[in-house]
Computed example of a mutant assay.
Amino acid sequence: MDEIELKIKTVLAGVFPEGTSLDGIGPETDLIDEWGMDSLQMISFLLGIEDAFDIELDYGNLRLDDLRSVRQFTGYVAGLGVTMR
Rank of each mutant, 00 (worst) to 15 (best):
M1D: 15
M1T: 11
M1F: 15
D2M: 08
D2W: 12
D2Q: 11
D2K: 10
E3Q: 14
I4P: 08
I4N: 05
E5P: 03
K7H: 09
I8H: 06
K9C: 09
T10L: 12
T10F: 12
T10I: 08
A13N: 09
G14R: 10
G14E: 12
V15M: 01
F16K: 00
P17T: 05
P17A: 14
E18A: 13
E18T: 03
E18D: 15
G19R: 03
T20Q: 03
S21W: 08
S21E: 14
S21P: 00
G26Y: 12
G26I: 05
E28K: 11
D30S: 03
D30L: 02
L31M: 02
I32R: 01
D33Y: 13
D33F: 14
D33Q: 13
E34A: 11
E34L: 05
W35H: 05
G36S: 02
M37Y: 02
M37G: 01
D38Q: 00
L40V: 07
L40A: 06
Q41L: 00
M42R: 08
I43P: 12
S44K: 06
S44T: 04
S44E: 13
L46P: 05
L47V: 15
L47K: 08
G48A: 06
G48E: 04
I49C: 03
E50D: 04
D51S: 13
A52P: 03
A52H: 06
F53S: 01
F53Y: 00
D54C: 10
I55S: 07
L57W: 05
L57M: 08
D58M: 05
D58R: 07
D58Q: 11
D58I: 01
G60Q: 14
G60H: 13
G60R: 10
N61A: 14
L62T: 06
L62D: 08
R63M: 15
D65E: 15
L67P: 06
R68W: 13
V70R: 03
R71L: 13
R71A: 01
R71M: 07
Q72E: 14
Q72T: 14
Q72R: 14
T74S: 06
G75Q: 07
G75I: 05
Y76D: 01
Y76C: 00
V77G: 04
A78P: 06
G79T: 04
G81L: 08
G81E: 10
G81V: 04
V82N: 11
V82E: 09
V82P: 12
T83Y: 12
T83S: 15
M84V: 15
